[in-house]
């Protein structure tokens, strides 16, 4: 019973949120856009949470995988790869956009994770993102250069598919994190983050689990990138390969409470709200406030909001 309660409440919450577009007009209400953005952040944040919160490896490459997903979607669409009529919210395209980042995650994750720890892994993934950025800018026809790839925005009808897909992905990401942590894999991950040497001596094949977490994280980021490409209709280095897409998930995850299932959701909701509201009501100076909020939260609740609550229960 105890185990079922959180699952039921999450499923219920998801269903309830799924009804919002029927209540509130998705074309007129800012709420739908706001929640869409929040869900996107939840997906990225949960992906980062899986790597950093559970294995203790700080990745600064979320934006690279996010962009890889978006670029894959855009390229498949532009090249008309399957000669289908419709690539807009096409599940195969989206899944492929998740898998391409996985390939890259494996290619860089295996060498990096087998050699590097902690800070160096962070720098390595950051370097990967920067290389990818240069390649995309210099990619000529293939990547569309600095303009990027433009997609036909005429297919857009409503924001509802974006909203529901984002909700589904957020649900999926949360589910993945939940089941990973409850399964043997999750136990292994936590063991790694707590004491790597002890974990390896008790027979956990560390590299495998770390790479697995990293690859799943890349998959989630890629899916999210694909979805965002469907929203923006232009995939460009300046829109996708910017460090914000890495820093936001880190921020949201840590503020919410990394290494927990619910923390990232709370963090994403709170920070998206903070960013949106400050940007609306304090235009021009809102990054100052964001900066102050980040510093204050880190100083006074460094373990995340969720732990404030958990401590007492």
């Amino acid at each position: 019973m105890k185990n079922l309660k959180p699952i039921t409440s999450v499923v219920l919450a998801t269903l309830l949120l799924g009804l919002i577009p029927f209540v509130s007009d998705s074309e007129k209400s800012y709420l739908v856009y706001f929640l869409f953005l929040t869900f996107c952040h939840i997906v990225l944040t949960q992906g980062w949470n899986l790597v950093a919160g559970y294995t203790g490896q700080v990745s600064l490459g979320t934006h690279a995988f996010f962009a890889l997903g978006a670029y894959t979607t855009a390229m498949i669409w532009r090249a008309d790869l399957f000669s289908w009529e419709n690539y807009y919210f096409d599940p195969v395209t989206m899944i492929l956009s998740g898998l391409v980042p996985v390939i890259f995650a494996l290619a860089i994750g295996i060498p990096l994770l087998s050699k590097l720890h902690g800070d160096y892994f962070a720098l390595g993934t950051l370097g990967f993102g920067e290389i990818l950025k240069v390649v995309c800018i210099k990619g000529g026809q293939f990547t569309g250069g600095p303009i990027g790839i433009m997609l036909p925005s005429s297919v857009y009808t409503t924001m509802r598919p974006h909203y529901w897909t984002a909700l589904f992905l957020a649900f999926l990401a949360t589910g993945v994190v939940y089941f990973m942590t409850k399964s043997r894999v999750g136990l292994a991950l936590v063991a790694i983050s707590e004491d790597e040497t002890a974990a390896s001596s008790s027979g956990i094949y560390i590299l495998k689990y770390k790479v697995l977490a990293f690859a799943i994280s890349a998959f989630l980021s890629g899916l999210c990138g694909s979805l965002y490409a469907y929203y923006l209709f232009q995939v460009s280095p300046e829109g996708f390969l910017i460090l914000r897409w890495t820093l936001y998930p880190v921020l949201m995850c840590v503020i919410g409470g990394s290494g927990t299932v619910v923390g990232p959701i709370l963090g994403s909701l709170l920070m998206t709200a903070v960013f949106t509201v400050t940007s609306i009501y304090l235009p021009g100076i809102h990054p100052i406030f964001s900066g102050i909020i980040i510093i204050l939260v880190m100083l006074f609740m460094p373990n995340g909001i969720i732990r404030l609550w958990k401590k007492g229960v």
Binding site: Y33, L37, Y228, Y231, L232, Q234, S236, E238, G239, F240, I242, R244, T276, S279, I280, P283, G284, H286, P287
Partner: peptide
């Protein structure tokens, strides 16, 4: 006015 923060993703917002 709305601040687009000099970023393509934010101009949409």
């Amino acid at each position: 006015f709305a601040d687009d923060e000099s970023e393509p993703a934010k101009v949409a917002g």
